[in-house]
Design a binder for these strands. Sequence first.
DNA 1: CATATCAACTTGCAAAAGGCAAGTTGATAT
DNA 2: ATATCAACTTGCCTTTTGCAAGTTGATATG
Lengths: 138, 138
Amino acid sequence: MKKNTNQTYDTGCPVAFALRMFGDQWTLLVIRDMAVKGARTYSELLDGGEGISTNILAQRLKQLEENGLVSKTRDPENWRSFLYALTDKGRDLAPVLAEIILWSGKYNHGDNAMTDTLQKVRRDRSGFEESIRNGAVP
Amino acid sequence: MKKNTNQTYDTGCPVAFALRMFGDQWTLLVIRDMAVKGARTYSELLDGGEGISTNILAQRLKQLEENGLVSKTRDPENWRSFLYALTDKGRDLAPVLAEIILWSGKYNHGDNAMTDTLQKVRRDRSGFEESIRNGAVP
DNA sequence: CATATCAACTTGCAAAAGGCAAGTTGATAT
DNA sequence: ATATCAACTTGCCTTTTGCAAGTTGATATG
């Protein structure tokens, strides 16, 4: 019998379930880069803005793939590139992103806090969500 | 001049801002315990279900207080207890929690995935959010 | 009066995760 | 023959976690 040394044994809590998928400092930023910024390759993701390091990015992409949030295919036009894309499961995080963005919009009073994305979500939230859902189909 | 060894220098991204507040494995679970399960004391939070360890809980509560998501007051009825409560800023995460729960409800096909909370959010989402917003005022 | 209790932490140490720089791979372009 | 470029991998050191045990201070107990 396996000893349970704390490790996630499923309590069934939906919040905990979600956190197992993207409950760390980087995963949601990777998703953001794909969903909002349209990043599709490893290089683009690496230059995502927040400075993720290459080993962590590789690890997170692998997890995201394993968890079915992201797909990885060869770029038909570039033998050397792979194309990463959100799956439906990944794109369905759009409402979560939207709420997070709105919350930050309310409470981040920093200088450059008023981003294009925030404005877009405020003005046309369902448009924002749709644009994510209409990302290229894997 | 300070060297920026990666560390969070603000890109202004709302997602990144939010992740600085609760972008780790435990913080959102602590918020969940207060918002959804009504936990108010350190002991209650410690027994939150997922098995957070005491040093981490203490650390997270401190951060949450510093970031203004949680308030800490003495329990007027129990000299030994403190009462932790979500502030408005913390309660405003209700929609984020709701979306996370709905997402998990869609994709968690585990045995005990259909929790009371999920059902409540599905049936009466604004009621769920209101119940969080109506937590005792700090 | 001495001792036990209880909530809320703190401390110490080993283990795991993260960050940084450098190296690898394999097909083209020069 | 050598350089390039995207996508990783590897090694090493630092930081963060996890776990267990200890601390604190006011009451309750004997």
